[in-house]
Every structure is written in C-alpha cells, then in structure tokens.
Amino acid sequence: MNDVISTILNHRSIRHFEDKPLSEEQIKTLVSCAQSAATSSYIQAYSIIGVKDQETKKKLAELVGSQPYVENNGHFFVFCADLYRHMLIGEEEGKNVLSSIESTEKFMVALIDAALAAQNTAIAAESMGLGICYIGGIRNNLNEVQKLLKTPERVIPLFGMAIGYPSKITDQKPRLPFEHIYHEEVYQQDTEVYLDQIRGYDQVISDYYNNRTKGKRKDRWSEQITNMLEKQSRMYMREFVQKNKLDLQ
C-alpha cells in the first residue's frame, strides 16, 4: 500500500481546527491539484471561491445552519458549477452555445467537474497533514449565499469545504460493505441478499455509535437515513437552478 492509498483510506471529516490560516502557497497548491482533476471534454465547468474574510465566514456559517467549523478553519473553499465563462466565449466567438449550456447534460457535466476537482483538493489537503470537511449546507440558503459571494448567472455554489490543521480527530465511520457497493458485470438484484447486507451494516453502525457515545446513541444506518429522507429539504433547488439559466431542457 502506498502513501496515496493510505491517505485516501484514512479519510474522516474534521470539524475542529487550530486557529492557523493556510499559507498562500498551500492555497495555490490545493487549487492546482483541483485543476489537475479530470474534466469532461476539457470543458472545465467549475470555479472555486476561497473565503478568508472572517466576517464572510461568519455569515456563511449562519447560512449553512450554524456550523462553527465553517467560521473557524484555516481556509474555506466554495465549489461552484460554472457555465458563465462558456456563455461569454460563445458570445466572443459568435457561436450559439446557449442551447447546449442550458441542457441537463451540461449541467451534469458542471456538477461532476466540480465534484472531481473537490475530491482532488480533499486528497491533496489530507496528504499535507490537513483536515477537511465538506459542507453541503451551502445549499440551505443559496439565494443568500449567491448574494454574499456575488456569483453571476449560470454559476451555482454547490458545496463548501473547510480545510485546516486538525485540533481534534474523530473516529472513522464504517462504510457500506464492499460487496454491497461493488457489482460484477451487472447490478445484482437479489433483494434478500441486498437487504441482509444492509442489516449487517446496520448492526456495525449501531455498535459504532454505541461505543463512540458510551451508550447515548445506538441508531442504525437505515434508521438514520430514512429519518433524514422522510423530511423534505431544499425542495426549491429545481426552481433555483432554472432561475440561474442552467438545466432548462
């Protein structure tokens, strides 16, 4: 096992950081690593907004749901789906690109490009001894986030990433079993086998929470996830995406 694989397998979310900012060199390295990620057809349909200003971080922390690690970290990144530049170069080159830009396909390309860039950033940060935490709560109040970050049309903030020097490292959460995630040749659809794998995983997660909280929490993964999915959240997203002139077809 090499160092890259060890870094990947050692991942866990970090939510407590030292009061120490990242250097300009570190920030540039992380963004360069993000840019080295694969991108569909070389389209590079994403942008990254770095947030240093403490007041802006504080406002973001409130918007995402009062998460203190959004305010207190070494640096905060916001990853955006971005087809704004593609609209501009279409106008510059005299080409009608709007039908393509406003398609579901190109919207998916932008989402995937941003996710790939972000994961490169995460792995690079962890290889440097830093900790990271993805922040999906950015999508709780996108209208306000957009105003705060001054993003133009065809740019959608997707998620944040808090990065910094860990002050507290938590246990790693067990993932679903390998045989449940990986399917050979075709998707395996034996429902009883499928559910049996989940029941086994439920027990692993229940034991994990029980040990971590000294008996204060024992919920199963199925219980946790279905409770979350039962509550509708961010149901404005389709309207928001369309308002920003993406995914219209």
Rank of each mutant, 00 (worst) to 15 (best):
Q35I: 09
G160L: 03
Y182P: 06
N96H: 12
V241N: 09
D190E: 14
E179I: 08
N96L: 13
Y201N: 05
G200D: 12
Y208G: 00
R220F: 10
Q197G: 07
V241R: 01
Q188P: 09
M235R: 11
I48N: 01
Q35F: 13
P177G: 01
D219C: 11
V51D: 05
L9T: 12
L149I: 09
H180P: 03
E91Q: 14
T29F: 09
G200M: 05
G90M: 13
G74V: 15
S233A: 14
E153P: 06
Q54I: 14
F240C: 06
T213M: 03
Q119K: 00
I112N: 09
Y165E: 03
N10Q: 11
P166V: 08
Y187V: 02
H180N: 10
R212I: 09
R154L: 02
E184K: 14
K106Q: 15
I14M: 03
K59E: 03
Y46H: 06
M108I: 15
V204H: 04
Q119M: 05
E192C: 07
I8P: 07
S36H: 15
R217M: 08
Q188R: 13
V97H: 11
D219S: 08
R85E: 12
D171N: 15
Y182A: 15
A37R: 04
V97P: 02
E223A: 06
S13L: 09
K106C: 11
F17C: 01
V155N: 00
V186L: 02
D82T: 12
E62I: 04
Q44I: 14
S36K: 06
P166C: 03
H16L: 04
A37K: 01
F240I: 04
Q172W: 05
K20P: 00
Q189M: 10
Q35S: 13
A34G: 05
L98H: 06
D82Q: 12
L248I: 12
T170A: 15
P177M: 10
Q44P: 04
Q203M: 06
G215E: 05
I112P: 02
M235S: 14
T29E: 12
G129C: 04
R220Y: 05
Y182K: 15
Q197D: 06
G137W: 01
S40Q: 07
K245D: 08
G160S: 09
E25D: 15
E102S: 10
V78A: 01
L149W: 06
K57F: 05
S40C: 11
G137Q: 11
E93L: 15
S23P: 07
G131N: 04
S47G: 10
T104C: 09
L30H: 01
Y42E: 09
R217G: 02
D53M: 07
P21Q: 03
D196Y: 01
Y208F: 00
D202N: 13
L9I: 12
T56N: 02
D3K: 14
Q197M: 13
K218V: 02
I181R: 15
M87P: 02
P21D: 12
Q189P: 00
L195T: 13
S99V: 09
P152F: 02
N210T: 05
Q119P: 00
N140A: 06
